[in-house]
């Protein structure tokens, strides 16, 4: 536990907890709106954005964040206009981002290591700037969900009923996917592009499977996410393992335990 005295560990734990809370809360609504794959699609698209940013010499998080935000809204627009199925557009975005990254990587060997560091992430090397970003996204997430909880609940239940009640469904949908893309971008730092979506999906799936209400699902999801993240980071420090992988393995273990426990009672 001596390691807890180090600044980088404290910063990593704090960032991890903030990202875990944001991701798990947004994740519940992502799953209920059948957008569980959105996280994977957007994070892989961000891979292309990061590669392009590194090649251009601009700040990768901000650059890929703006690109990802735009693509998330484009996906929502296509879904709303029913021009193309949500799963199809996500599959295109997913493979498009990876393809762009692969092409850019083949152009130059010099920046490969920079780009690869985003693939697996490391919550223990977050900078103070990235901690501020995580805090900002956490505060935005809390404010958005608190202000729009009833509307989001109704929209996840039936969009037509929500529209008839005068809820601005289109605007809220775009704001929600924008928030989801911000959450995905900051979670890339903790677990990397490949595992970013697991932060949003696994704890939320456990909460939804067990709780008797939506509020219960949100609380349980947040609890599982925070406990898994802290445990995962501590395990990774103790056994000198990659923190991203350790966190996700603990999340999967927690999900399995919760679901099995629910079946037994």
């Amino acid at each position: 536990m001596e390691l807890l005295q180090y600044d980088f560990v404290q910063r990593g734990l704090l960032a991890g907890v903030l990202i875990a809370l944001s991701s798990s809360l947004v994740g519940v609504f992502l799953i209920l709106r059948r957008l569980a794959f959105l996280g994977a699609g957007l994070s892989h698209f961000a891979f292309g954005g990061v590669a392009l940013a590194v090649l251009l010499g601009v700040e990768p998080f901000l650059f890929s964040g703006i690109l990802t935000l735009g693509v998330a809204n484009l996906i929502e627009l296509l879904r709303r206009k029913r021009r193309i199925g949500g799963d199809v557009s996500l599959a295109i975005v997913f493979s498009g981002g990876v393809a762009l990254a692969v092409v850019l990587l083949s152009l130059s060997e010099g920046f490969r290591e920079d780009v690869f560091s985003y693939l697996f992430g490391n919550v223990l090397i977050v900078s103070p700037y990235e901690l501020y970003l995580s805090t900002g996204v956490f505060l935005i997430t809390c404010a958005f969900l608190l202000l729009n909880f009833k509307s989001l609940l109704l929209m996840s239940f039936n969009e037509e009923m929500a529209k008839v009640r005068g809820i601005k469904v289109m605007v809220l949908n775009h704001l929600f996917v924008s928030l989801a893309s911000l959450v995905i971008i900051v979670s890339i730092k903790a677990v990397g592009i490949i595992l970013a979506s697991s932060f949003a999906v696994i704890p939320a799936a456990a909460g939804i499977a067990v709780a008797k209400s939506l509020r219960g699902s949100l609380i349980l999801s947040a609890l599982i996410s925070v406990l898994s993240t802290v445990s995962g980071i501590l395990i990774s420090l103790h056994f000198d393992l990659a923190p991203g992988g350790s966190i996700v393995m603990v999340m999967i273990a927690a999900f399995t335990l919760v679901v099995v426990f629910k079946r037994l009672i």
Binding site: L153, L154, S156, N158, L214
Partner: peptide, 15 residues
């Protein structure tokens, strides 16, 4: 809605 949707009747009505 998905058969796993956790929303309770009380939550729906209070919403």
């Amino acid at each position: 809605i998905d058969r796993f949707h956790p929303v309770s009747v009380g939550e729906l009505l209070t919403s």
